[in-house]
C-alpha cells in the first residue's frame, strides 16, 4: 500500500481503504480502495446491484461500513458522521423537492433544515437566482416547472449550505440534450469553485463528463481512472464499449 496516502488522508475529499460492507452473508462492497480529490468530478458507474448505492450510503453516513477506513472531508465516518452530514449535499434522481412550494420556498425550507439564518438564506437565494439564471421564476411553484428546471432547483437545494461535497444520484437521465449541457455547465462551475462532485449513474454518456471514473461490478472496483486514459488502456472508442469490456469479462 502507498504509505504517503495513508499518512495524509485529510488531503482528500473522500479517502477509502479496504472498505467492506456486508449484509449478512452478502458482500455488497468488497475491499474498496479509492480517493477523490477536492474539486474533482468523480463518477461511480455500474449496473443495478453493482454496489454503487451502498458505497454512496456509506459516504453520506447513512450506513456504517462493516470494516475498513473511510474518511469524508477528513472526518472519520465511524465517529464523526454528524459533522460529515453538515458538510455534504445530496441530490437524488427523484429530486426531493416540495412540488407545492415555490422555488424560493424550497430554498428557504432546505436552508432552514441546515440551520441557515434568514439573512444567509436570502443571500444564497440571490446567489442561486444569479448563478442558475432563475430570476423571474423564484415565485413559481416547482410542480409547474419543466424537468430540466426541477433538476436545476434540486441542485441548488443540494448546495444551499455550501457543502464541500455534493452527491448526484443519476442526475440527468432522460432530459433534453441541450438542457443537460446547461446542467453540466453548472456542475463544472461548482467544481471550479472547489466543490467536489460525486456522480452515480448507469448511463455511460453521462460518465464522459466526469474527470475521473470508477467502474464497479458485483461489489468490486473493476477500473478507476480518467475516461480517456481508460478508453486508451482498454482499446475502445466509447464509454459504452469500455463498460461492456470491463464488466462482461
Amino acid at each position: 500500500m502507498d504509505i504517503a496516502t495513508t499518512i495524509e488522508p485529510q488531503k482528500y475529499a473522500i479517502y477509502a481503504r479496504k472498505l467492506v460492507k456486508k449484509f449478512g452473508n452478502f458482500i455488497a462492497d468488497d475491499n474498496l480502495n479509492f480517493e477523490v480529490h477536492p474539486g474533482e468530478i468523480f463518477g461511480l458507474l455500474g449496473a443495478n446491484g453493482a454496489g454503487k448505492t451502498t458505497a454512496i450510503k456509506m459516504m453520506t453516513g447513512l450506513l456504517k461500513p462493516t470494516s475498513g477506513i473511510l474518511k469524508v472531508n477528513g472526518y472519520d465516518i465511524y465517529s464523526e458522521s454528524e459533522i460529515i452530514r453538515k458538510s455534504i449535499g445530496y441530490m437524488s434522481q427523484k429530486f426531493s423537492l416540495y412540488e407545492e412550494l415555490t422555488i424560493y420556498e424550497n430554498i428557504r425550507f432546505f436552508g432552514g433544515i441546515y440551520g441557515l439564518n434568514l439573512k444567509s438564506i436570502k443571500s444564497r437565494a440571490e446567489w442561486a437566482e444569479h448563478t442558475f439564471s432563475l430570476s423571474g421564476f423564484m415565485d413559481k411553484r416547482v410542480s409547474n416547472l419543466p424537468l430540466g428546471w426541477k433538476q436545476k432547483v434540486a441542485f441548488v437545494v443540494a448546495s444551499i449550505h455550501n457543502p464541500a461535497i455534493i452527491f448526484l444520484d443519476e442526475p440527468t437521465g432522460g432530459v433534453d440534450p441541450s438542457v443537460r449541457r446547461n446542467f453540466w455547465d453548472n456542475i463544472y462551475q461548482a467544481s471550479i469553485n472547489g466543490t467536489t462532485i460525486i456522480v452515480t449513474t448507469h448511463y455511460m454518456d453521462e460518465a464522459e463528463y466526469c474527470q475521473r471514473i470508477c467502474i464497479m461490478d458485483q461489489g468490486i472496483i473493476k477500473a478507476i481512472g480518467k475516461p480517456n486514459e481508460l478508453k486508451n488502456k482498454f482499446l475502445v472508442n466509447t464509454m459504452n464499449e469500455l463498460f461492456i469490456k470491463i464488466v462482461r469479462n
Partner: peptide, 10 residues
C-alpha cells in the same frame, strides 16, 4: 431501457 443497465440495454 430507461433505468436499465448498459449490458441489459444491449
Amino acid at each position: 431501457t430507461t433505468g436499465v443497465d448498459a449490458i441489459s440495454r444491449i
